[in-house]
Design a binder for these strands. Sequence first.
RNA 1: GGAGUAGUACUCAAGAGGCUGAAGAGGCGCCCCUGCUAAGGGUGUAGGUCGGGUUAACUGGCGCGAGGGUUCAAAUCCCUCCUGCUCCGCCA
Length: 457
Amino acid sequence: MLCTPIPLVFFSFKFSFYNHFMIVKKGDNMIDIKLIRENKELVKENIRKKFQEQKLGLVDEIYDLDKEYRETKQKMDEARAEKNRFSDQIGALMREGKKEEAMTIKEKVTEMSSEISTLTSREEELSQMIKEKMMVIPNIIADDVPVGKDDSENVELKRFGEAIVPDYEIPYHADILESFNGLDKEASSRTSGNGFYYLMGDAARLSSAMLAYARDFMIEKGFTYCIPPFMIRSDVVTGVMSFAEMDAMMYKIEGEDLYLIGTSEHSMIGKFKDQIIKKETLPITMTSYSPCFRKEVGAHGIEERGIYRVHQFEKQEMIVICEPEDSEEWYEKMWQFTVELFRSLDIPVRQLECCSGDLADLKYKSCDIEAWSPRQQKFFEVGSCSNLTDAQARRLGIRAKSEKGNYYLHTLNNTVLASTRALIALLENNYQADGSVKIPKVLQPYMGGKEVIIPKK
RNA sequence: GGAGUAGUACUCAAGAGGCUGAAGAGGCGCCCCUGCUAAGGGUGUAGGUCGGGUUAACUGGCGCGAGGGUUCAAAUCCCUCCUGCUCCGCCA
């Protein structure tokens, strides 16, 4: 009992999830169960590619349970159909005033009800078991996603801009900020604890300037600007992310069924929950602003000094909801918008493709945009672009109507600009030998025309 | 937060225990009329979801804000919750 084998960890994790969220509605899967009925091997191969061997057995289990489920459902439906026929007869007889005959049938129906309730509870049991297992079967990933175990095997696809190492030293970003009285973490520890910050003066203004610039940049690209709710209900949370992510990220409001959003993607995609979207409104392209709250329970934790990993930041985001056949094309456009934005701020970036093992279960394909850090002489993450195909739409019921029936749309999301990370990138890449920080041309209008920030000490 | 009131398909809307997959209308298809548009007349048609079936015809279950309950039978009766509206309270 002392040493817990891996499969147990996996299952106990799942149970803790269900304690919080008892209601699992239909459509909570990432993939269509038909795929398991018709092409079990494909689903298994996908799981192998993601190095989640512990889930392989689930596929066969689901296959068998589904078979039994459908057989049971068939029997249950037939029994109910018979019962309905009798009930109709009772109704007809009652109207004609033939009470005795009605009573005879009534007794017959009463006898049937125990059989029906046995079948019903078995059916419910099976469907619940299937749902629980389906819940963790990951979305099918794109064919060209590089196979790898974890983030160490992510693949650099392309660089944009020249990654310069200046001949003077670039200080740690917190030191640059403090040089013009832009950061107070001591006060924020007192008021809020570790992982928060006070940004002040030009630093705060620079942060807002970048967000405003990013907002206008996306509006120019034809996206609709939106300020969404900063809290969402649990049913939206579970639809929008895997529960592994949820556990590590989301803050819950005490005594309410509300969570602080970790990114506006959550409320933006949630906006379309259970909606049948009119084809003529597609693609839906929106750019949203929000503060983002994250527990950061992961392996890295919160750092002591800087603002690289914090519990709160602000973000301009973009989301797209489109026809299934268009999502690959949108994915390419979307990450390129971020590259273009960072290049316009004179920040060198690269595109790093997520390998199969590092890809969250909902995702079909994903890449990070990383900015150059001349101080560390390496790239660091400033944004992430993902195509979730129909996985998120399936969970949330985001559909469109066609002649053949309703179908799930595809959803994508991408960071335009995250305040703290972008600020670090900007400071480091525009830091000059004399300790001042150049303000890129495009940001100057948002900074009251200021061209440079001069250190106070 | 307190009181009242409502929630029916893509939209509006009838309905008050069995005859209701749910009247009617918008919508959508076709036709007629008007120089075009708007409007008008005629006629036809669909409906969500999970199964079975040759991803056919057809067929069964569920389904009237969500979840439970009463009943042989619930859109209709009861309970809980959610949302909208009105009034009061509180506040940027």
